[in-house]
Amino acid sequence: MTTVDVEPLELPARLTSPPRLTQRHPWLLPAAMAAHRARRRTQWVRDAWSGRVVWASHRASADLPVRLKQHGSLLLRELAADQMHLQRNKVTNLRLAAQRIDGIVIAPGETFSFNRVVGNCTRRKGYVDGMKLSNGEAEAGVGGGICQIANLVHWMVLHSPMTVVERSEHSFDPFPDKGRVLPWGVGCSIVYNYVDLVVRNDTDRPFQLRTWVGERYLHGQLRTDERPTRSYKVEARGEQFLRRDGQVYRRNQIWRRVIDRRTGVQVGEELMKSNCALVVYEPGPGVEVIDVD
């Protein structure tokens, strides 16, 4: 470990605020979740009646002609033996969620809501106990693991001109980077129905999501009917592990570079997200942890 001058570590409020009431009294959690869900349902109805939001719901079986982005996400991570059954169950949950998303077309002016399209993941619908993250710890929960498909959709959308309206990240970094393909910090947290991934199509072209589960990978494609004049490169910058008061934090920034397809020249860039999370594992060899005040 080293001590160097670095930019001050400013922790987000979610990591510094006192424990929530439901953390101090877990028995209150079901009532709190019911209240959150009721507020979100009311918001959905209000938005629909006002005409402010048109929700994407049309599903097309035929592919739109242009494949804008595709990605494959490994289904099973190498975790402790007592957690692998949750990983296998996760595949069942991902298959059900992928079937709900596959073929959805986000027309011009429409908004895609992950929770509205996938719905509540219940046992009645065939969902099983998979791995969920709660306060940085893995635990069993019905529908656990569907965050992986939200991560996939978010990653593909970042490579398009669509607008991310709502996205919640995890407050914790739960696993080391072994086998990581996507930058840390582009994932999503999903809790039906009030922690959501919401994307709006402000362009004049339709976009289509294709998602399916293969033998080893969760697959996704983002398609459209006409190739845009610009492409996008998403990258992490300023990656750091910082130790303060005995706890390790990870931070970075997610940037998106805008490329002119015709010339290959970068025509712009934008900061998409600044991330900071509590690391709940001990960083291994080769990971520099900087001590800060």
Score class of each variant (00 low, 15 high):
Gly136Val: 06
Asn135Tyr: 07
Asp177Glu: 14
Asp245His: 09
Gly119Ser: 04
Arg20Lys: 15
Glu78Asn: 10
Arg256Thr: 11
Ala13Pro: 09
Thr2Val: 15
Leu96Lys: 09
Asp47Pro: 07
Val280Phe: 04
Gln240Arg: 13
Leu152Met: 14
Tyr232Leu: 08
Met272Val: 13
Thr42Asn: 03
Asp102Trp: 00
Ile149Asp: 05
Phe114Asp: 00
Ala62Leu: 13
Pro183His: 13
Trp155His: 05
Pro30Gln: 01
Thr163Leu: 06
Val164Thr: 07
Leu75Phe: 05
His58Pro: 02
Val142Arg: 05
Val248Thr: 14
Thr2Gln: 14
Val117Met: 00
Glu7Trp: 08
Ser17Phe: 06
Lys273Asn: 07
Asp5Ala: 10
Gly187Tyr: 12
Ile190His: 07
Gly126Met: 10
Lys132Glu: 15
Arg39Ser: 01
Val279Cys: 03
Gln43His: 09
Gly143Pro: 15
Thr224Met: 04
Arg180Leu: 10
His58Gln: 11
Arg256Ser: 07
Glu288Asn: 12
Ser134Lys: 09
Phe175Glu: 13
Val195Arg: 14
Gly185Pro: 09
Gln23Thr: 14
His25Trp: 11
Ala107Asp: 10
Gln148Ile: 13
Glu137Thr: 13
Arg237Ala: 10
Ala236Tyr: 04
Arg230Gly: 03
Val258Ser: 01
Lys125Pro: 00
Met131Pro: 13
Cys147Glu: 03
Arg24Phe: 03
Arg37Tyr: 02
Ser274Gln: 10
Pro174Gln: 11
Ser189Arg: 15
Val153Phe: 02
Ala150Pro: 01
Glu226Met: 07
Val117Gly: 00
Arg100Glu: 05
Val118Glu: 05
Arg230Trp: 01
Thr224Phe: 01
Leu76Thr: 11
Leu28Phe: 08
Val54His: 12
Pro176Ile: 08
Glu10Leu: 12
Val195Gln: 13
Ala236Cys: 07
Gly51Met: 11
Thr16Asp: 07
Pro176Leu: 08
His71Lys: 15
